[in-house]
């Protein structure tokens, strides 16, 4: 075991993938000499060369489009989008080409492309540096969408994503980049928990709280705070956003009868809606109350002085837990 920051854990996972498969190439803006604006690729160009860790011209559509060509040629490109808000110039390539090539060619052409995207807010940045665009991609058939919440998962899941023959959108919770955790770098990614599986990270009886990426830490804090108030919260780290491991969520909800979903992304049309609907379909008769969503509001990500009002923090999620449990809460007395 080694203590690594989240960013360093990804770095170490990328390094292993580069070592193990000569077809793995990294591409992105400022990822080489600089080592990425978050230093996630620090030192990799020096060790693997400019042909495997590529500083690209400043053009996201160009980066992803050429990654498609490299994949056509048998490579496994790992693309870095510098910040969440800069993925949109590449949206067409991701949605129309990366996602559909396998389908279009009846499986003849594989797109084992990993698209790494630092996402989410809480770091006091200007516009376009704090977005949570995961639902667009979860809504796109042909893409797998995952998000680790701990250094260990970041380390193994990035390797699993790169090894996967399908395209994977890999959302990195940037406000957790500096968080440290124990990482077993010798763990065989093939033997570790699959990136498709959710994980129960805190056991509880009264309510199921589903989170992913940056909010898993907050959700665990919620469980601790709730315990002080006599509530037992089960926390599930989703890990995979498309497909969602509904079996794990369902098993928990059958036990607790109550569901709260938290994410930073805006509410309407988001993953919370998908999870609430699917769980309601799957175990309606086990639910004691309507599923509750605690999310970012349906607004453009606000300027930094307001971001803490937009982001679901500990108290807002606790308030949601109260709602699920029918305890007094900020909406008491209101219908629905």
């Amino acid at each position: 075991m080694t203590q690594l920051t989240f960013a360093r854990a990804i770095n170490s996972g990328l390094r292993r993938s580069l070592e193990n498969d000569a077809k793995v190439v990294l591409m992105g803006e400022d990822i080489g000499t600089l080592g990425g604006v978050f230093r996630v690729t620090d030192g990799l160009q020096k060790d693997f060369g400019k042909h495997r860790v590529i500083d690209t011209p400043l053009a996201e559509s160009g980066i992803v489009g050429t990654a498609v060509g490299l994949a056509y040629r048998g490579y496994r490109p790992v693309v870095e989008i510098q910040f969440d808000g800069f993925v949109y110039p590449a949206f067409d390539q991701i949605v129309c080409q990366v996602a559909k090539m396998h389908y279009r060619t009846k499986g003849a052409v594989k797109m084992p492309i990993t698209i790494r995207i630092p996402f989410g807010g809480g770091i006091g940045s200007p516009e376009f540096h704090s977005e949570s665009p995961e639902a667009y991609f979860a809504h796109t058939p042909g893409l797998r969408v995952i998000s680790p919440s701990s250094p260990q998962d970041a380390h193994t899941m990035i390797q699993q994503a790169i090894a996967c023959d399908d395209p994977v959108l890999f959302f990195e919770p940037k406000r957790r980049y500096h968080d440290k955790g124990d990482v077993d770098e010798s763990l065989d990614p093939g033997a570790a928990l699959s990136f498709e599986k959710a994980r129960v990270v805190a056991d509880g009886r009264d309510v199921t709280l589903v989170a992913y990426g940056p909010l898993v830490k907050t959700a665990r804090d919620v469980a601790l705070a709730a315990a002080d108030e006599g509530m037992s919260v089960e926390v599930i780290d989703l890990r995979s956003l498309a497909p969602v491991d509904f079996a794990t969520v369902e098993a928990s909800v059958r036990k607790t009868g109550r569901l709260v979903i938290a994410h930073e992304a805006v509410q309407s049309g988001g993953l919370g809606a998908e999870i609430a609907a699917s769980i309601t379909e799957r175990c309606f008769y086990y639910l004691e109350s309507a599923p509750v969503r605690v999310t970012g509001f349906d607004v453009p990500y606000p300027y930094s002085k307001l971001e803490m009002h937009h982001l679901p923090g500990l108290d807002r999620i606790l308030d949601g837990v109260d709602r699920a449990l029918g305890r007094p809460n900020s909406l008491s007395g209101l219908e629905g």
């Binding site: 705070a225 803490m308 009002h309 923090g313 500990l314 606790l318």
Partner: peptide, 15 residues
Amino acid sequence: SFGDPAGAASEEGAR
């Protein structure tokens, strides 16, 4: 429902 809205919106919470 909070005395201090700033606390209500902090990551750590005020509750």
